[in-house]
């Protein structure tokens, strides 16, 4: 009961934020009705997907401060579970998605246990290592199509809500938007929950957290599982949306890094941060790729600009866009005068 109350409690945000959030949500809701190109629609879908990835990453990377660079492996587990179950046994998305989520979470517990004995850089590099190991395994595993991957067969009758196959992108869009709303509400409850507070205390100072009765190791594993669940669900969706999956596509290091980058750029450890990050980087990436990509003969220029932005943010405000907003607000509020 309290979890539901917490999920709907946005009272600690200023009214300005909430009206902005409302306006953005109204726009998202109406977007398919507005005139748009199919490229814009594809970009919006990417934006929603990366927002969800980022929200998930935010639990472990933001609130708990453990910079996870191996999320792609869980995307892969979700995507492959759905694809394999559809291709081999004709199982609908709504069954395979929870299965994929459970498998991913199970795997996250298994590797999370040793992984969280590590801290800082060592942890981050180890997450990369585990993700690459899994990708290498999938690349030679014939059951899942090895390096060529899997192709989901097209259903005879469209739209098919069970198997998530549609002729028009707006179906996918609204399904993602629903997940997006659920994700925000879940995270809002999460940050108000005991676990949310405990993770922030761990990020602040792990020794102090332990002295307050917090089992830091176990809390991190739990947060890691939450993050994994988010990513695996989007992975399952990705399989249906793309039809065609291969390890290099769904489990690449680039994906892991992108997920972390977006959340960090927007502001890790805040509710809106990952969404802001995705809203900036996804359109930037896709439109710059379009304008400056292979077609124009300037392959790489878009990613150079991209890398430059990331370096700039890291050097100037490592707490991201939301960190800047908070800094300005703290300055306005003024310091504490002891009474």
């Amino acid at each position: 009961m309290e979890a539901i109350k917490n999920a709907l409690d946005f009272s600690d945000f200023p009214r300005l934020d909430l009206s902005l959030a409302g306006a953005v949500f109204a726009f998202l809701l109406l977007f398919p009705a507005l005139p748009h190109s199919s490229f814009a629609m594809a970009t919006m879908i990417q934006f929603l997907m990366f927002s969800l990835y980022g929200m998930g990453w935010n639990t472990i990377g933001g609130y708990a401060g453990q910079v996870d660079l191996g999320k792609a492996q869980y995307n892969g587990i979700g995507a492959y579970t759905t694809a394999v179950m559809m291709v081999r046994w004709d199982v609908p998305f709504w069954v395979s998605m929870p299965v994929g989520m459970a498998l991913a979470v199970g795997w996250s517990f298994l590797i999370g246990y040793p992984l969280f004995r590590l801290k800082g850089h060592y942890f981050s590099i180890a997450t990369i290592a585990t993700s690459l190991v899994l990708k290498d395994l999938f690349e030679v595993w014939d059951f899942v199509g090895a390096a060529t991957g899997l192709q989901i067969p097209i259903r005879s009758k469209l739209p098919d809500f069970l198997y998530l196959q549609f002729r028009h992108d707006y179906y996918y869009y609204y399904i993602l938007l629903a997940l997006f709303v659920v994700g925000i509400l879940y995270l809002n409850a999460f940050r108000h929950s005991r676990l949310g507070f405990q993770l922030r205390a761990i990020k602040d100072n792990e020794d102090v957290a332990k002295s307050l009765g917090i089992d830091a190791h176990w809390c991190k594993i739990k947060a890691y599982a939450v993050a994994t669940a988010f990513v695996a669900v989007v992975g399952s969706f990705h399989a249906c949306y793309n039809f065609n999956i291969e390890p290099e596509d769904v489990m690449s290091l680039d994906l892991s890094v992108l997920i972390a980058m977006m959340a960090l750029l927007g502001g890790a450890g805040s509710l809106w941060g990952p969404i802001i990050g995705a809203a900036i980087l996804v359109p930037l990436k896709s439109y710059m790729g379009d304008w400056l990509g292979a077609a124009s003969g300037l392959e790489g220029l878009n990613l150079i600009i991209y890398g430059g932005i990331i370096m700039l943010i890291a050097a100037v405000q490592p707490r991201g866009v939301w960190g800047m907003v908070e800094a300005v607000r703290a300055r306005r509020r003024g310091g504490y005068a002891a009474s």
Partner: peptide, 12 residues
């Protein structure tokens, strides 16, 4: 985090 982010940007 800044070091991770920054050197990744450099890599890209």
């Amino acid at each position: 985090v800044a070091q991770l982010l920054g050197t990744f940007g450099l890599m890209l």
